[in-house]
Design a protein around this nucleic acid. Structure first.
Lengths: 204, 204
DNA sequence: TTTGGAAAATAAACAGTGTTTAGTAAATTT
DNA sequence: AAATTTACTAAACACTGTTTATTTTCCAAA
C-alpha cells in the first residue's frame, strides 16, 4: 500500500511546486501581470495541468495568502517576546508595520486585494488571519486585565489597534501618501512616529 | 469661428459620456470585470473610439477617481459644518466612514486599488486627494491652536486620524473583518464605536 | 456645388488572458 | 499481456486591452 502514499506525496509536492512558483511571480510581477501560462512555463508543465491541482487563479492566490500569513506569524514569533504586555503591544505594532514595509506585495494580497477573498463566499469564514489576530487580542486582553489601557473592551481595542496599524501601512502600500510630499525614508519615520504617538494616546 | 468651439464642446461631451458609462459600470461590476468593449457597447461606439479620448484603461479609471473625490468633497460640504473644531473633527470622521460604507467600490478605487495610481508615475504628484485632506488638516490645525488635542504636530495628527479612519473603512471594504464574526449591522456599530473611542483618546 | 483634405469613427487584427474539452501517454491493477 | 485508471497536454473557446489600416463624416476653399 506504499503506492497511494507516494502518489499523495507526489501530489503535495506538485502543489507546493506550483505555489512556490506562483508566490515568486506574484511577489516580483504582481497578481495581474502573472499569468497561469507564465507559471506553467516556469515549472515546465502545461497550463491545463495547474487546473488539476487548483480550481482557478483565485484559489492559487488564496493559497499564497495562507503562506504569507505564516510569514507574518514567524515575524511575530521572532520579534514579539517581552513579558511586559505594553512593551509586547509595541513590539507587535512595530513588527506588523515592518512586515508591511518589507513585503508590500504580500501585504497587498493579505489585507487589501479583493481577489483572494472571492474563494471564500458562502463558505466557512476566512481564518487565514486568525492566528496573528489572536496574538494581538491576547496581548490586549492582558493589558486590560492589568488596567493599562484606555479601552473598555479588548475586542474593540484589538480592532482599533489593527485598524491604526493597517491604515498606516496600507496607505503607504497603495501609494496614497503622495498626498504628503515626502521621500521614502521620511515616510518610514512618519509611520513609526504615528504608531508610537498612538500607543502613548491609548496608554492609561 | 464658432465651429472649433462646438468641436471642443462635443469633445468634452464625449469624454463625460465615456466617463459616466465607465463610472456606472465600475461601480456595479468592478474595475476588472468592466471591459473597454462593454463600455463602448453601452455608449454605442466602437472600442477603438475610446482610445481617441483616453490613453488607456488606467487613465479612464484615474478620471473616475477624480469624480469620486468630488463626491467625497460634496459629502464633506454637506455634513461638516460645526464651528467647534472638535465637533467638526467628529463630523469629518463620521462623514468619511459613512462615505466608505455607502460607496465601497468608489472607496476602493480612491484609496485602495493600485491601478489608478499607475497613471501618475514620474509625473506630477497625485493631488486628487488634496482638497479633502486639507479639510482635515485645517480642522486639526485649528484644534491644535486651541490646544484641544494630544498631538504636537498637525500634519502628524492629520495623518494619524486619516490612517485610523482609513484602517476602519478599508478593512471592511476588503472583507477582512470576517476575522471577527459579525453581521453587517454590527460591523457598522463597531466602526462607529471605534471612531468615537479614538476621538476621546486623542482629546486633551 | 463640387472637390480636396482634415477629422472622427471603425473593422479587423495582434498578442495576450483564464479556462475547458477531448484526446494522448504513462502507470497501476487485473 | 490486457484492461483500466491516472496524469498530462494540445487545441480550442470566449474573452481581454490595444493598434493599424481603412472608411465615413465633416468643413473649407475653388
Amino acid at each position: 500500500m506504499g503506492i497511494s502514499e507516494r502518489k499523495e506525496r507526489e501530489r503535495q509536492e506538485m502543489r507546493t511546486k506550483i505555489i512556490d512558483a506562483a508566490t515568486a511571480m506574484f511577489m516580483t510581477e504582481g497578481y495581474e501581470k502573472t499569468s497561469i501560462r507564465n507559471i506553467a512555463e516556469k515549472i515546465e508543465y502545461s497550463p491545463a495541468t495547474l487546473y488539476l491541482y487548483y480550481k482557478d487563479k483565485d484559489e492559487l492566490l488564496y493559497e499564497v495568502q495562507k503562506q504569507a500569513f505564516s510569514k507574518l506569524e514567524e515575524a511575530f514569533a521572532r520579534e514579539v517576546n517581552s513579558t511586559d504586555p505594553l512593551e509586547r503591544l509595541s513590539q507587535i505594532c512595530h513588527s506588523y508595520v515592518h512586515f508591511g514595509k518589507d513585503n508590500p506585495k504580500m501585504y497587498d494580497l493579505m489585507f487589501m486585494m479583493q481577489a483572494p477573498m472571492n474563494t471564500i463566499k458562502e463558505n466557512e469564514p476566512w481564518k487565514n488571519n486568525k492566528d496573528s489576530f489572536v496574538v494581538l487580542l491576547d496581548c490586549l486582553t492582558e493589558c486590560m486585565e492589568k488596567d493599562l489601557l484606555r479601552f473598555d473592551d479588548a475586542m474593540l481595542a484589538a480592532f482599533s489597534v489593527w485598524a491604526m496599524g493597517h491604515g498606516l501601512v496600507s496607505l503607504n502600500v497603495s501609494c496614497r501618501l503622495q498626498t504628503m510630499n515626502m521621500t521614502g525614508a521620511n515616510v518610514d519615520v512618519l509611520i513609526t512616529t504615528a504608531i508610537d504617538q498612538y500607543l502613548k494616546q491609548i496608554k492609561k
